[in-house]
Each structure stands twice: as structure tokens, then as C-alpha cells.
Write a protein that binds this DNA or RNA. Structure first.
Lengths: 136, 136
DNA sequence: GTAACTGCAAAATATTTGCATCCTT
DNA sequence: AAGGATGCAAATATTTTGCAGTTAC
């Protein structure tokens, strides 16, 4: 799906920054941090615009944040099942210790985890670190 | 184990701030953020001291960071299996959407996840969010 | 034309570093 | 006494907010 279509689908107006930033996500295999976007976008968007664009994309369910053990904030494209306000991010994230790329392993399903009495699960995230395909 | 012993075990000198901050972790059911420590410590430690103490504890394997989807950084006590430089954090973290407490569910083991060809797993973290025991 | 988006400036927050002083061993 | 830990000041880095100008529809 073209970036313009994705934006339209979500009721967002089509702007250069949104198209380009979304393009970055579509073309990237891994997740992106705010800093990556700042570097990679050809046009120099304002830092603030990037913050706001990312926030908008998260709200609309176009991208989602990935939990990381260090304090960095990573974003990656959501799959179609994601809808506004309700994420369906039941997929595994893999962070390569070597090249630092973060992959969304959509093909890997999270096995059910049984919680202790009284805990009600809403969402689960699995982050696995190690060495990726390309770095072996 | 008393806090002083833990510190000795790790070759750290015994200071008021270290004892008190470690005490907070021992007494806390959930994980703590930098801000929590700043608030809860009776003596008012310098913000910088807290940063440095947490960093030292992480290096020594006394506490570990917990991955979170928002950008916050959380810390929790490590179990005995954790050794300096090599963490064994194969346990599930549970974040309550209501009271924001983060639990280390040591009793819950992470089921094995099969990765695609070429990916080598080193460590895995599972973060589950929902409603905790106390908030139902 | 109107509502929404962007960029700039600046405020608010969070984190790191240097250095002099104080405390632990 | 010596090395390490702390506190203060200040430098950096990160994120948020307000507002005026611009752009999409």
C-alpha cells in the first residue's frame, strides 16, 4: 500500500513530512528511533515535526512503540490488525546485539503465558535479543 | 539478605545512599523508576547520586532495567542467578495499567519461542500489561 | 476559506560531566 | 592516608508547548 493511501485511510492529510517519514518505515526492515528519522530523512524536518508526526502515527495505529531495556524509544510499522486506539501487537521483537537493528518478527506468535491468580492480561510484548540473520 | 551484605558481596563500599536505595528495592513489590526513588527516599539524595547509584547497581548485576513501551526506565532487583555482566532475567514482567506498578513474576517461566532461521537468541524479555491482583 | 500542519522559539525535563569535598576502608 | 562516593554547578540532551505563518482539502 502506498504511503498516501495509508495516510488517507487514517483520515490524515497528506503532507511531505508524513509521506517521507512513513516511507522510511515502509522501506526499513527494522524499527526506527527518533534520531534515525532525523538523520535519514532527506529533507530536514524540524525535530518537533518528527515528534508530532510519530505521535500522530502511534495514535492512529500506523506505528507502535517497542519496549527496550535501554531507555531508547523505538517505533515500527503496525500490521493491518492494528486499529486506532487498540493495538494488536502480539508479535515478537528481535534486537540484534551486533547491528542494533530491531526486527518485528510477525511470523512468530507469542505462546500463551499463564499468569498467577488475579492478574488479567491485556497485551503482551516479547523482546528477544541476540544475533540476527545478517550478522552471523 | 541484608542490604549491607548485598553491597559487600559486590565489592561496593557501604554508604547511606546505597543502603537506602537498595532498601527501597528490597521492600518494593514492583519495579522502581528514578522518580520513585527520588520521592520515596527519606533522606534527600542528590539526583545525580541516584543516577550513579542505579548505574552502579546495574553494572554489578544487583538490579536490572525493565523494557517498557513508553519511554520510562524502570529498575528491579535481580535474582541470585544474575551475575556481574551477565544477566539471567528470564522472567516475566507485568505492568498494571491501573496502578502502574510493575511486578517481576519470577514464578512464571517464559515458554520457548522458536525464531526464524538465522536468528540466535541470547536473552528474552516478556512484558505483559493488564490489571493486577490488587486492582481488580 | 477553514482547519489542520509546520517551523521557530522557548520552556520544561531528563541525563551527563567536572570538580572540590567528604566518607569508607 | 588513599581511593572512592557524594553534592553542587553547569553542560547536554530530550521532549513539550505556544504561537504565527503556511498548506491541504
Amino acid at each position: 500500500m502506498a504511503t498516501t493511501d495509508i495516510l488517507k485511510h487514517n483520515g490524515l492529510s497528506i503532507t511531505e513530512s508524513r509521506k517521507q517519514i512513513l516511507e522510511l518505515f515502509v522501506n526499513s526492515k527494522g524499527a526506527l528511533a527518533h534520531a534515525d528519522i532525523e538523520k535519514r530523512s532527506s529533507a530536514a524536518f524540524d525535530r518537533v515535526t518528527i515528534y508530532r508526526t510519530l505521535q500522530t502515527f502511534v495514535e492512529k495505529g500506523i506505528i507502535h512503540t517497542i519496549p527496550t531495556v535501554d531507555n531508547s524509544v523505538l517505533y515500527a510499522l503496525c500490521k493491518d490488525e492494528c486499529k486506532e486506539g487498540h493495538h494488536h501487537d502480539n508479535h515478537v521483537h528481535f534486537i540484534c546485539d551486533n547491528c542494533i537493528t530491531t526486527y518485528c518478527l510477525d511470523s512468530v506468535t507469542i505462546p500463551p503465558v499463564s499468569l498467577p491468580e488475579g492478574f488479567i492480561k491485556k497485551q503482551s510484548d516479547v523482546v528477544i535479543s541476540g544475533i540476527c540473520r545478517n550478522c552471523r
